[in-house]
Design a protein around this nucleic acid. Structure first.
Lengths: 219, 219
DNA sequence: AGCTAAGTCAAGCAGCTGATTTAATTCTTC
DNA sequence: GAAGAATTAAATCAGCTGCTTGACTTAGCT
């Protein structure tokens, strides 16, 4: 159970190999279009059952990939959160909410696959809950929600969670879109992940501050 | 090739049966998690190759489902578009952009599956292009983009397409989220598709009108 | 040095996949 | 009403799936 034996390092190396290969294949071809066999082979494991041995089912593998990144993202989020203190400017809280993912992707260096992977996991009816569980277990995320709430005391609760959901989708899918564009050498609206995040923050702040139509409207 | 023979009606009935069954299964379990065999069986066709006979590959089936709804949605969009004329109010154009999908879902009556289906298709690396092709072929959609452009003459092109992308994702995924909540009997922020659309329009207008941060920002 | 436990590898299993082929049925058309 | 085409049904195919099995290799301990 020790940390630094030769054996343990080899194991964690092949685990890492499998995680990386899986992330790439999943992002490029689709989670369900790729078999555990293909992942094992792409990871350089002659063993066609390596995924099964190290992770179990494909769902477990997906969860492991999520966890691997979640820690780093949570770190970044906590750092940004510490900087905002008890601000009452919505933009400060939106920064905390939006920037961790793009900043993490930037830190990974190009190419990346995690955003496209996440977009699929969030959308798939069977894998959705994995991502949801991971989000719910983040204390910093709850803090941000609370921070936003304090900035917008007059906004009805339903509208605030409604717009929170929108932001959640926006962060992941906009990042995935940009990642795909980078992978395909398609022109992107922004030159860096940081600038892309700024564009997203601009939009999200505007969205969250938008006036709320009450009652009924004409059709 | 005539339209109203008994035979032709039976055929189009079983085609419809297959389309409906596929849409439901795809939405509930995932496009790739469902085999053509399962679709055929769920459609009540003893023939396990019915999908292959009537549609060809799974990609063709997905395309057929998209087309089936696209026509109705395009109709609604054209109707709304005719009503806005040459307005310079962003909200009018956002209405045209956002409302067709929720209005179509409302017209289908509950339960619906199309929104969840679309979310998956839009996200999957292999199926993405199907949805993109369908969108690009819509003249009314281009008109709306042009209308928004005229409302926001000072906004840089990149930012406008950037935010246009955001809206695209928002429409589909917010609808999918609500559809899922309805299917699972989970509470929803809004009581009707129309109200949900209003919430989305509010947010999108705010997003599109948000000020644009120029140049660099502090990290 | 020798034993145990863990990781790797290679092969094989039943089951399901899409696709094709053949047979039976059903409607159209002459 | 019979010929013929089109749809449905049923059986079959090779290929791939996840999963299990057992043999082999190697690290770590006594």
């Amino acid at each position: 159970m020790a940390g630094r034996t030769v054996r343990a390092e080899q194991v964690s190396a092949t685990r890492e190999l499998i995680l990386t290969a899986a992330e790439r294949l999943f992002a490029e071809r689709g989670v369900y279009a790729v078999s555990n066999r293909q992942v094992s082979e792409a990871a350089g494991q002659g063993n066609n059952a390596a995924v099964g041995y190290h992770f179990g089912t494909k769902t477990d593998l997906v969860r492991a990939i999520i966890r691997k990144h979640a820690a780093r993202i949570e770190e970044i989020r906590a750092r940004l959160l510490a900087a905002v203190g008890d601000s009452t400017d919505v933009r400060d809280w939106v920064d905390c909410l939006v920037r961790p993912v793009p900043e993490h992707l930037a830190a990974l260096g190009s190419p990346t696959w995690y955003a496209r992977f996440c977009a699929q996991v969030m959308t798939d009816p069977a894998l959705r809950r994995l991502m949801a569980e991971e989000s719910l277990s983040s204390p910093s995320l709850r803090q941000i929600v609370e921070g936003v709430r304090r900035c917008l005391p007059d906004m009805p609760d339903e509208v605030r969670v409604e717009r929170g959901d929108m932001v959640r989708h926006l962060i992941v899918h906009v990042a995935a879109e940009r990642e795909r564009a980078l992978a395909e050498n398609t022109p992107t609206p922004r030159t860096s992940w940081h600038d892309a995040a700024t564009g997203l923050v601009d939009a999200v702040v505007g969205m969250w501050l938008a006036p709320v139509t009450r009652g009924r409207e004409i059709t």
